[in-house]
Nucleic acid binder design. Structure first.
Lengths: 80, 80
DNA sequence: AATAAATATTGTAAATACACAACATTTAAT
DNA sequence: ATTAAATGTTGTGTATTTACAATATTTATT
């Protein structure tokens, strides 16, 4: 199908919680190197993995992942 | 990682719009048989495909897909 | 500056997603 | 009841996701 690249906020969200990739990987249930691949956006997560990450961060999938390059989360909070 | 099964509302949403699988497949940009696989939940879509479907239906990913078996959408609209 | 911890890179292998084809079955329309 | 359209089933092939290992590089800590 020629899959589009999906952008994500994993690295920022992980740092907000002061987690290492290893720690996040444990919570999510994947290899720590998989977190690396995702943060570098070298490949897209499966839908299940996206959901696992969304559960760990307690945020909807659409807030963490996007088909468009991501602006900093803080920017989303400003009035306009 | 042992991927969990993801449930979805594709069939209902498609029927609400009176689309055939072929028509939905065209909009989404996949083979019509892929829509079949997804509706039967025989495999999970990639994250990109989930986003494409979410774009076609103009609904967030989390409303269409879930790690839990899905209740009818109508039920979501009732007070309680 | 030396060390340790974290992250990046490269490579191999397995599982899953997706395309596509051919045929069977079900559903809808006349 | 026929026919046509839609959906299901089975199978093969390719691409992508993930695991894991080994080593290199970067960043933090002392």
């Amino acid at each position: 199908m020629e899959s589009r690249k999906i952008y994500n906020r994993i690295a920022i969200l992980r740092k907000e919680k002061s987690l290492t990739r290893n720690e996040l990987a444990d919570k999510v249930g994947v290899n720590f190197q998989t977190i690396g691949y995702l943060e570098r956006e070298e490949y897209n997560p499966s839908l299940d993995l996206a959901f696992r990450i969304s559960e760990v961060f307690e945020l909807p999938v659409d807030l963490i992942f996007s088909t468009e390059p991501l602006t900093p989360l803080s920017q989303l909070l400003t009035k306009k």
